[in-house]
Write a protein that binds this DNA or RNA. Structure first.
Lengths: 197, 197
DNA sequence: CTCCTCACTACATTCGATGCATTACTACAG
DNA sequence: CTGTAGTAATGCATCGAATGTAGTGAGGAG
């Protein structure tokens, strides 16, 4: 028999999911600003304090699954033959992960739009994204220490993610449908990767 | 006679400067987190409320002169012959502006370091930087509407600033001296601009 | 059954940020 | 010189995010 997580852990994940669901629901109903953490906790039937045991900030409840995306990017970097291939693979992994997740989740990328047009959430997203760049740059430098130094790694990763992120936000702001956003991200990645050729 | 700004405006700038000076001093003495806005206002001998008349957030007191930097970048974009030249000029304008300002201000880039290793300030910096990208991308697209569409513009600007920003932070974190940081930024810009060739 | 762990709770506090009414000074028109 | 409009600055009150602390109860291990 496969040992699943115990009852305690399962309940914990249940609470977490209830908080995410309540948050998304309330955000779409009343808007982000007009929803307090106390509201979310109340709707999920837990205490306000519990919210902060699951999420470091109010913003993070919308970025719950962002960590996994970076992991897939790092994994893609590690398993590639050349720096250029590594970056291309990382880009594709993260874009398609975003496609499967946020972009299609909810009606027409509702989650994504919620993130994009709220300053506080956007700031937090940029922050975690930036931290992710460091991880990716390290992975790239370690995978090909003879071909890229640390400045190269930072510049390449920064260029790639900067291009993709800026393009994605522009497309979302413009109101593009999810698949158009994804295609724009792919084009941006392709363009940025010319620098790595 | 040249008409300078009136007494009122001069006094306003004086309080603003007093707030910046007090903030930087207290931040370096006690650290960012352990300094409250009330402390800063008190040290500048104004009310707490006045602080927020000059700066939208506590973080912005450290990013006081960031707006002008973007202006110089936008101006450089407008006055260039080709997209590639526009981006190169914008990069050089902003890098040398940073060099004259933050990097050399105070002992060994103290301001810059204060920004880099504080999460809240960093998040705010990323936020205003990202907003700047939109302005630059618009300027680029309008200057060369026949050569770049909106995806190109967003991707190119994103790649350039993403590369430079990531490299700068990496260099600052590593403890590089100011001129080494500047040189790394220039290398990163050069590398990212291969995509615009 | 016993002991320990830990998710969760209730309560209190700090501090960033905003709204509102008011004061004080500046600029300007008559 | 005087009234008036504009605005920087103030004091006060309030909201809400985030953290520290102590305590409760269910879950899991022996």
């Amino acid at each position: 028999m496969v040992e699943g997580p115990g009852r305690r852990e399962r309940k914990k994940q249940l609470t977490r999911q209830a908080l995410v669901d309540a948050a998304v629901r309330l955000f779409t109903e009343r808007g982000y600003e007009r929803t307090t953490v106390a509201d979310i906790a109340e709707a999920a039937d837990v205490s306000t304090r519990t919210f902060f045991l699951h999420f470091p900030t109010k913003e993070d409840v919308l970025l719950a699954d962002a960590d996994g995306r970076v992991d897939s990017g790092v994994a893609a970097v590690a398993g590639a033959a050349s720096p250029a291939a590594a970056l291309a693979a990382a880009a594709e992994a993260m874009i398609s992960d975003a496609w499967r997740g946020d972009l299609r989740a909810g009606p027409a990328g509702l989650r994504a739009r919620l993130v994009v047009d709220n300053p506080a959430v956007q700031a937090r997203l940029l922050q975690v994204g930036f931290a992710a760049q460091t991880r990716l740059a390290d992975a790239l430098r370690e995978a090909h220490p003879d071909l890229v130094d640390d400045v190269d790694a930072a510049a390449l990763v920064g260029a790639l993610l900067g291009a993709v992120a800026t393009t994605a936000v522009a497309a979302l702001r413009r109101g593009d449908p999810p698949d158009a956003v994804r295609d724009a991200m792919r084009r941006a990645a392709e363009l940025a990767l010319r620098a790595a050729g």
